[in-house]
Amino acid sequence: MMLAAATVGLLVAMLIVLARAIAGPSLYDRVLAVNSFGTKIVLLLAAMGFLSGRPDFLDIALLYALINFIGTLAVLKFFRYRHLGVASPSDGKAETTR
């Protein structure tokens, strides 16, 4: 019962965060929102596993937690160095805030 209520809460939270991801205004707000969205998806997957009575689905939640982290780091590496290869410090300031 409480699990269902918590799931509804998660879904509402996801809507709010998605609104922030779309509204921006800066790129960093969007990265933060998508990262936070990912955390909520992990929780939602775990909750869905319990709701359907098959908690084995947690494997996917675990995979998500990993992917979400790696994805965020890749995005930020791209921000700071402008490419995904070897970092060159001179490129760090090329990005403006929007």
């Binding site: 969007r30 998508v34 939602l44 869905m48």
Partner: peptide
Amino acid sequence: VATMLSGGYSLTSAALLVSLDAV
């Protein structure tokens, strides 16, 4: 922005696939 949002899109659609039992 489109890239970031499509990352979010993939996460959501994967959650949907889990709820459809296509693990």
